Simulated assay, not measured.
Amino acid sequence: MISAEQLQRFIPFGDLSEHALEELLPHFELIRLTSRSLLFKRGQQADYCHYLLQGSIDLIDDHFDVTRQHSEDEGNVLAIDADHSIHKYSAVVVDDCLIARLPRRSLQLINTWIDVALAAASDEETDWLEALLTSDLFSRIPPGNIQTLLARFDERPVTLGDILIQEGDEGHECYVIKHGKAVVTRSNGKQEETLAALGPGTLFGEDALISNLPRSATITMSSNGTVMVLSKTDFDTLLKIPVLEYVDNEQLNELIEDSDTGIIQLDVRPTQELIKETTSRARNVPLTHLRSHLDTLNRDFIYVVQGDNRAEAAAYILSEAGFEVKVLR
């Protein structure tokens, strides 16, 4: 198996903590090749990233120009010909080589988590239970519910590349990361948009349970780890019902009339559904964009959310982020 010391000379692994590297090592495969062996061929799908640990190879382009790469070269810090999903070169072994390879998708997940989190994971992971219980959301749950809730979680081991939630699927469970890291992505036409990097103590997947709408994003593990899983039934009973508050139109008017605090109405339906509704007093922030707009909202105000079955999901997200919020029936 490749060692952490060997791995750290290559980008981006030099930025990872020792703990993160140790988790990653089992995903590498070591390959020994003799002189004149073909590592990969031009035009082939680049499913793996190859790192040259020992020996030398020739990279041959479509004009048959040759570039030689030695393991001891100062520039040998990147995967071989890994800039594109299709190989631009053929790689032929010159001297007997030792190659470490990693699935390309795994490297993409690792890089994405680092980029979004803006830092590598620390050697000591955040305590998941402490992070969960000290969140704004849990301050609104009766203490008795918390004890029952923790007993209802099922522990599940996961590995790098596991898809926990698939965009478009129906939701039956929500999750908390106990150990490890994950990446949140959403399809944007033919491209994949990265939305967030998740770490220990993060609760996710609850939006679809509340709204009964399909999953709005894909969540993929970017390391090995453990997740705690909660069923929809337990989530509704122990988390959703205690957190959400409701008002009708009459109560909303009384709230606006009598409250010393500013009231802001949010409509979380997709913008295209509201084009003909020119009389609404509510600000439109579609549910799919709400998390990215949280920093534009003011915690000094009370938010009243409307938008059919999306309203409860939006109210839950706001409560989780520490806002005072009510659902308009």
Rank of each mutant, 00 (worst) to 15 (best):
I2T: 05
L7Q: 05
Q8R: 15
Q8W: 03
R9I: 13
R9M: 07
F10Q: 07
I11Q: 14
F13N: 04
G14Q: 10
F28E: 05
F28V: 07
I31M: 14
R32L: 09
L33P: 00
T34H: 15
R36M: 12
G43E: 04
Q44F: 01
Y51H: 08
L53V: 04
L59S: 04
H63I: 10
Q69F: 02
N76R: 05
D81M: 08
K88H: 14
V93P: 03
V93K: 05
A100Y: 02
R101M: 12
L109P: 07
A119L: 09
A119D: 08
A120H: 06
E125V: 02
A131T: 02
L132I: 03
R140F: 03
R140Y: 04
P142I: 00
Q147H: 08
R152G: 00
R156Q: 14
V158T: 14
I163N: 06
I165W: 06
V176N: 00
H179R: 15
T185A: 14
T185H: 08
R186H: 05
E192Y: 01
E193P: 01
A196K: 11
A196F: 01
G199Y: 01
G201C: 02
A208Q: 06
G225D: 04
M228D: 00
M228G: 01
T233S: 11
F235C: 01
I241V: 13
P242W: 03
Y246W: 13
D248L: 10
L255N: 10
D258E: 15
S259E: 12
D260C: 13
I264G: 12
R269K: 09
T271Q: 12
E273S: 13
K276A: 10
S280E: 07
R281C: 11
V285R: 03
V285W: 09
P286N: 08
L287Y: 09
L290K: 06
S292Y: 01
R299L: 12
Y303I: 08
V304K: 04
N309R: 14
R310V: 03
